[in-house]
Design a protein around this nucleic acid. Structure first.
Lengths: 338, 338
DNA sequence: TGCAGGAGCTATACCGGTTTATCAACCCAG
DNA sequence: CTGGGTTGATAAACCGGTATAGCTCCTGCA
């Protein structure tokens, strides 16, 4: 027998289909003895539920979705997503829920995917990344009544469930570290301005500046690409009163910045200190190795998966979970100013 | 009405469920007039097929799977997978087939996933990557009768359908380029020895050596990690008759190797030429930028998707498709030997 | 005029599970 | 000894599609 069905098991056990279903799902309705017998037979026949049949009857598909709206070109280098992904999967695998992954060009396409997934019942819920300030996806998902979790977007009133890290505290720890080394001219090469975490980081720098006696602490936004990271760095280092330290919002931009400094003959960390707001092999491959803020991205993903599963099980209350605080890993790219 | 079913459409159109199914699937059995009317109503009610229901009836789930068995740590930095993935998706999206992605620790776990997918009918087929020499997955998939396509593994007799690039020619083009510059001592820092493409590249170097008059052309295998790449480089550069050029099997290892050279005071490309067998932003971020072999990974993935869909549609004949040849992009890390 | 054959539909079984209504057997209290 | 409640099980409906047997016309041809 190729693929046994519960009907086959029922026949073999001499009971009805219903009894088998009860037994296999651990719900009352059969005696312990019968349950035992059915389970053993199912095991012997190596039965597995037909996912589509179960989805049809129970109206849940045991599958969640994740859409990433970024050009593929920049995606690969960011270890962030690979770690996040494995984390999400480890959180899902416990319940043997599968993950649908999709990479699209923009947010409009992303919303379209959610719409399709909802109407075709392909997923039980979705995980959102790269939250923007007035994110249109939030309303779209509410309308679709598709359970969702936001990663990195701290939920206000009427928001979706979320999992977030304290970007503000993290940025403060970097700036305070640099200030303690003696830096007074610190520049911040930020990411896309409409991302929520970008905003939070910029605010953190601005708020801390007076307290730490910083002369100048500009935040300059980019599109997160190595090209813009390099361009901004070139501009910063060409100024007469150039910064003695630069904080980059991603490891890729920090690496690009380091390249520009070397090219311009600015020694790191002698003339310039560099800090990356995200850690990976990349930062360690460099010479000098970059001081970076390490986050437990894997755990981030795992928690997001957990929160999503809880939300699917019972939509209320809305869960907002804060993850472990990032820590600053000091390497060779930072030192007191000349 | 929340989510309309074909029964709703049937009622509204005053026809039977069967007629609606025929009309929506573009098969004969209804007149053009009726078909038109049904399609219009379906459109108005914004009907979408329930994926589980369709899967149950038609015994196909419109979904394919891909499992990557590599530690997540090294995954993220390799732009290879991100590009491959988007390529696969672009090939699938044309038929609106969805992709299930899973990252696991080892091949045993990977095979277990295939087994589960097959028995639960979760996917119509799978895409294999990182083919090894006597790959156990091939037999497993044949036993499971799960349609599959191998990426990068050139199929012999009785093999699975495949999509491959000519590693041999590619490697030859690199070695010939270096020989033409005047290099006679060329080292090859290869990847995992049991990968098929590693074997092919090693053989290419070995075969070309006498013809090009190379004094020494050792291939040294690694686990593809930056750490081993760096270690081997250190060893090579410490030799009395050290190589004047090194070819690395991945961009990450090449970057690590460049770091070691700088650290040891070996100037690139003055004292040492470096070539990476894989291109990405990484190689361009470096100083000097690395000469690298560029492959159209996106197209690779797209073709794999196409071949898989064809294979699912009709298992025979077995398709083996060769993709566009890689080209060598010369940058700053290669020059004639001193 | 009669009949074969096809076009156009309908009714219904089916896919493999879950869920509900129903029922028999049994236990216990009154 | 009887009525009510619980336990353990069954039969059947159901989820939303697809596939098929069969029915009713209509057309064409001998």
């Amino acid at each position: 027998m190729a693929r046994p069905t519960i009907a086959d098991i029922a026949t073999r056990a001499g009971v009805s289909k219903g009894a088998v279903s009860f037994a296999l799902n651990g719900r009352p309705g059969v005696s312990d003895a019968t349950r035992e017998r059915i389970l053993k037979i199912a095991e012997q026949m190596s039965w597995r539920p037909h996912s589509a049949a179960r989805a049809l009857g129970a109206s849940r598909v045991d599958s969640v979705g994740m859409v990433i709206a970024r050009p593929a070109r920049t995606l690969g280098v960011e270890p962030f997503f690979a770690h996040l992904l494995s984390g999400v999967q480890s959180g899902l695998s416990a319940e043997s829920i599968s993950l649908q992954l999709l990479i699209v060009e923009d947010t409009a396409a992303e919303i379209e995917v959610y719409r399709r997934w909802a109407s075709e019942h392909r997923v039980d819920g979705v995980i959102l990344v790269d939250l923007t300030v007035k994110d249109p996806r939030v309303d779209a998902l509410k309308t679709l009544e598709l359970p969702a979790v936001m990663i990195g977007g701290r939920g206000g009133k009427g928001a979706l469930p979320s999992v977030w890290a304290d970007d503000r505290d993290a940025m403060l720890s970097i700036v305070e570290y640099l200030a303690a080394l003696g830096h007074r001219r610190i520049a911040h090469v930020a990411g896309t301005p409409n991302f929520q975490h970008t905003q939070r980081r910029i605010r953190a720098v601005r708020d801390a500046a007076p307290r730490l006696g910083l002369v100048d602490a500009p935040s300059l936004t980019t599109d997160f690409s190595d090209a813009e990271g390099a361009a901004i760095t070139r501009k910063l280092l060409s100024q007469s009163d150039r910064p003695t330290a630069i904080v980059y919002d991603s490891d890729v931009m920090a690496v690009a910045g380091l390249g520009v400094a070397m090219e311009m003959g600015v020694s790191v960390p002698g003339d310039l200190s560099i800090v990356a707001f995200d850690d990976s092999i990349l930062t360690q491959l460099m010479h000098p190795a970059l001081t970076a803020l390490s986050r437990d991205t894997f755990d981030f993903g795992r928690q997001a998966a957990e929160v999503l599963l809880e939300t699917i099980a019972s939509p209320i209350p809305v869960i907002n979970r804060r993850t472990a605080d990032p820590v600053l890993t000091v390497r060779e790219s930072t030192a007191p100013p000349a």
